[in-house]
Design a protein around this nucleic acid. Structure first.
Length: 385
DNA sequence: TTTCATGATTACTT
DNA sequence: AAGTAATCATGAAA
């Protein structure tokens, strides 16, 4: 009975013709798949373990900004990428395994069935290839979503605007510190920018951005920044006072109020890069409002500044060699020595370097719209009178 | 949710 | 190339 049935089945099969389209089997490399593979390879998700990943990350970082920023975002990017990579690989392995399992399962099934019905090797082959195709389409989905993830990651990191993070408090402190202690000329040199970038763990271009924003915003609404200016002025002044105290320690000028008495601030945190621009600050002070001065001797400079301002400095507190702090010192001294802004109002801090034309250095920008909102000293430069 | 602060970008200018 | 002014987009406080 059984052989008879078997032969019947064979006959039926012969008629239906199983070899429907065998030629289609050799799957031509899907261009879409190729594309995905190439991309994954290029991004370092597929391919060799670590080398590709970091290379791609480096490329991405380089494209993001200046080539010298090897900071947080870089490693962050790398970490996220390797995470994607790991997920991708485990998923891929899972699929592979599942595919193999399923294939053997089907094979076993077919083998079992081959006892009761005729199954040609071609049929088995076809079955297998169908399974493989199914799984590879799943794989393709995996690859596609991985690619998407990488793209999103990249765009997140490349388009930093989208993922704007505020700088750390400390970084802002440092930047503000510099800004207000160089208020007369808040244009850090390239080296200074690099230094600041390092200190703040940000990029040089971020420092430039910050100063660009700060300058413009400060200028736009000086009143708003008064408090901040005072705060940082005081901070730097303390540092300066310390330095001054140290500088004139032997000159026995008995100041009535010792600067460091009961006024402890974390000096180390606010110490200024005293090395460079000892003179630039002063010179720039003058260039800000009265043309460019090029005095060769910083001591002379210091003296001439005193004269120009008509203020008398308490030399004991200031010290003869602390030019880099003149800006802020002058402010502090103005408070203690009864310095009053001519315009009245809130005479706490006046922007020495700002000229009436809306520029720090030259009167090139013709914006005559100085905000009328009581900017004490917005047009006032105390060296001009 | 609205509003303000702030880092980044863009179009110009110098 | 570096700055300015305006603007965008997001983070955080209200």
């Amino acid at each position: 009975m059984k052989p008879a049935l078997f032969s019947v089945l064979c006959e039926i099969k012969e008629k239906t013709g199983l070899s429907i389209r065998g030629a289609q089997e050799e799957d031509p490399p899907d261009p879409q798949l190729m594309r995905l593979d190439n991309m994954l390879l290029a991004e370092g998700v597929a391919g060799p373990e670590k080398g590709g990943g970091s290379a791609a990350a480096a490329a991405a970082a380089a494209a993001a900004g200046s080539p010298t920023d090897n900071s947080i975002e870089h490693s962050d990017y790398r970490a996220k990428l390797s995470q994607i990579r790991q997920i991708y690989h485990t998923e891929l392995e899972k699929y592979e395994q599942a595919c193999n399992e399923f294939t053997t399962h089907v094979m076993n099934l077919l083998r079992e069935q081959s006892r009761t019905r005729p199954i040609s090797p071609k049929e088995i082959e076809r079955m297998v290839s169908i399974i493989h195709r199914k799984f590879s389409s799943i794989q393709m989905q995996l690859k596609q979503s991985t690619c998407e993830a990488v793209m999103i990651l990249r765009s997140r990191f490349l388009d930093a605007r989208r993922k704007r993070r505020n700088f750390s408090k400390q970084a802002t402190e440092i930047l503000n510190e510099y800004f207000y202690s160089h208020l007369s000329n808040p244009y850090p040199s390239e080296e200074a920018k690099e230094e600041l970038a390092k200190k703040c763990s940000i990029t040089v271009s971020q420092v430039s951005n910050w100063f660009g924003n700060k300058r413009i915003r400060y200028k736009k609404n000086i009143g708003k920044f008064q408090e901040e200016a005072n705060l940082y002025a005081a901070k730097t002044a303390v540092t300066a006072a310390h330095a001054a105290a140290a500088a004139v320690q032997n000159s026995q000028t008995n100041s009535p109020t010792t600067p460091n008495s009961g006024f402890q601030m974390k000096d180390e945190e606010f110490q200024l890069d005293s090395a460079e621009n000892k003179n630039t600050l002063l010179t720039n002070m003058f260039t800000g409002s009265s043309g460019s001065f090029n005095l060769p001797n910083s001591g002379d400079l210091f003296m001439s500044m005193q004269n120009l301002n008509g203020d008398s400095y308490q030399g004991a507190q200031v010290g003869a060699n602390v030019q880099s702090q003149v800006d802020t010192l002058r402010h502090v001294i103005s408070q203690t020595a009864g310095y009053n802004d001519v315009l009245g109002g809130n005479p706490m801090y006046s922007p020495h370097g700002l000229n009436g034309n809306g520029g720090w250095q030259d009167a090139t920008t013709p914006s005559s719209v100085i905000s009328p909102t009581e900017g004490p000293g917005s047009v006032h430069s105390d060296t001009s009178n």
